[in-house]
Design a protein around this nucleic acid. Structure first.
Lengths: 362, 362
DNA sequence: CATGTACTCTACATCGTTGTAGAACCCTCG
DNA sequence: CGAGGGTTCTACAACGATGTAGAGTACATG
């Protein structure tokens, strides 16, 4: 039997509503009254019943963050950033894992659990452009990532094409010509893999280097394990390689592992760059150059957009792309010791969703 | 204006309570009635208002998981496991980060946000034995980790001393004698650092190797960065080293980095073993041997204990220590290629909390 | 002195659900 | 046929907070 406002009111000799007013900082309260109420609250150890308040004000003060898996470093770090950002505005985050399973991702959009929170930050990995229609949901939603473009919702994404282009250009600038890719998803036209591959192709074209498909390694899931496998396959195929662009850092770590296993020197024989700039790449040997997509920016922006929607904004849906930096480290010989050096800075941008669903990602 | 049970009842031509009964699977309902209600629910797209239900039944169906930081791989993986385990029993997890700040950890015990959830899984990092009294809280609580022993709460912890002893013995069995430690917390008598160090000392004693304090490296926070620093300090001190026991995997990764930076071959010149068995250590070069503390077991056990407390169990508080395995990998030359081999298996155990607060951890 | 306005507080209805108590019906059995 | 027991359903009062409307002051103003 917990303490309620009723109990506090009784002890302080005021009405329940006055207690409520004190708790909520309503200004027109006599100091003496306020103090009596506060004394009663302290004395009784009163704590607001959130369920009751939520029922009354029709808000939960919570948002859901939907990610594939927390054990993937990128998503763990993203969750960390989102929780901090939400905390700053007084919101609480509920994390749900979908395991990148299509069925569970669809359930998110079906609103299976939406009643628990006021809105959803959704980072799909299994859904694709074909599911665009399903994103037209009746609850506040902000989409993260590159699986869908043009959904009727705010969207925070990365500067994939340009960043990948810059990352590849960084390898080319170091004199590399035989640049392998780890993590391609053949047949995809949208999604991180396709977009980053496009950037890679553009950089090659800019430098007049012909595209050699033998250098493009496929990898379904972007884990360390698949990165190592794919790198191994490429190396075993006998194709000449003097650099590797891993489409994310987990795979870059796996690729590095595979290179070492074959006694190939990085960056001496093969240079390497990843994508995401997770903490891990600063402690591998050598440290790995990467693309920093502005994770904190992504998190803060996403939370702000969602909170605005929850508050009822009717503004047109927008796509926001935070600024991106290419960070050079040991694996591209960019820094002596464990230092790092920002080699490229790409500005962020804001676009209208309606404008051009596909082009926007490119 | 969302759809309520009222609306459903009206459409189905029944009372609100009957709708409630259908929704909650009450058995004594005529099939025809049930179908009418279900049709109405589908047709109107009704979804239960959780706040109202929570208010009525005095439960939220949520538990809080309090960890220092999700960006630390061990805690990200722990959170992953906890969310899965809770999901299986129909519970939802709210993650809170304390950043290992003492003030925020105290706030957890003060119950600052307890009203949001039915119970708390708490993994403190800043609190210590002196704070034992504060764990006597009036809400269901399960403690994780090694910072406090003997608190009036269920406790799920690791087999620290024996596991560390076995890990050290593993290095000794490989012929190493000059075994450095990375991550000690001088002056501590409880906590992961102290317990693991005790195991280390016991293994040395068993093998008749004298303890050399010059080999014991201090590191406050157990991050990759501090592991690298500490390893660097030990190496620069000129003391002879032929093996390293890093008190967790993050520091093992950092240590490996520092060893590589000095062109020291692992495991040729120096063998290395960590603690936690996070996913990362399977992809470093070489792969790192580690202590697998049974993370899934820890998560499942913790959730079960907490749910039991929430249900009102009055059983005496217990400390549960899941079984532990020592996994040999490349860094101790235990497996060719990327293989791994379980070199030791330690059984789990269950103890009464009251029995012996301190001895239990040892 | 009457009037208006700002302050301080209260009573009551209300948010959407579930527990309780009991009504109405059916069936079975002595 | 009446008692007893199960089934099926309903009315009503909670759960603990907040919004609304308004009562009662106090003070300044014309």
């Amino acid at each position: 039997m917990p303490v309620t406002m009723q109990d506090v009111a009784q002890r302080a000799g005021v009405s329940v509503k006055t207690v409520s007013n004190v708790v909520n900082g309503y200004p027109h309260i006599r100091d003496s009254t306020r103090h009596r109420v506060e004394e009663a609250i302290d004395h009784l150890g009163y704590r607001m019943n959130v369920s009751a308040r939520n029922l009354r004000i029709r808000r939960t003060g919570m948002i859901t963050l939907n990610v594939p898996e927390l054990s993937l470093p990128y998503f763990a770090e993203l969750a960390d950033s989102v929780i901090r950002a939400a905390d700053e505005c007084g919101w609480t985050v509920l994390i749900e894992q979908t395991g990148a399973e299509r069925a569970r991702e669809l359930e998110v959009l079906a609103g299976g659990r939406r009643h628990l929170t006021d809105g959803v930050l959704f980072s799909p990995l299994a859904l694709g452009p074909d599911d665009l229609g399903r994103f037209d949901v009746d609850f506040p939603l902000v989409v993260l990532g590159e699986r869908v473009f043009g959904a009727p919702a705010d969207h925070v994404t990365m500067n994939n094409v340009e960043a990948a282009q810059a990352a590849t250009a960084h390898l080319i600038a170091a004199g590399r010509r035989r640049i392998a890719v780890v993590g391609a998803h053949p047949g995809e036209v949208i999604g991180s893999a396709a977009l980053r591959l496009t950037g890679y192709e553009r950089a090659l074209a800019d430098a007049g280097i012909p595209l050699d498909l033998a250098l493009v390694g496929e990898a379904g899931l972007w884990h360390r394990a698949t990165g190592a496998e794919t790198m191994g396959r490429l190396l075993d195929s006998g194709v000449e390689i003097d650099a590797v662009f891993a489409l994310n850092d987990a795979m870059a770590l796996g690729a590095l592992h595979a290179l070492h296993a074959r006694r190939i020197d990085v960056p001496g024989d093969v240079a390497l760059i990843g994508f995401d700039d997770v903490d891990d790449v600063r402690y591998s040997v050598p440290t790995i150059s990467s693309v920093d997509p502005g994770r904190d920016d992504i998190a803060r922006t996403a939370v702000e957009l969602l909170v605005a929607r929850i508050s009822g904004t009717e503004e047109p849906y927008r796509r926001i792309v935070p600024g991106t930096r290419i960070v050079g480290r040991g694996s591209t010989d960019e820094a002596e010791g464990d230092g790092e050096k920002v080699v490229t800075v790409l500005p962020g941008r804001v676009e209208d969703i309606e404008a051009s669903p596909l082009a926007a990602g490119l």
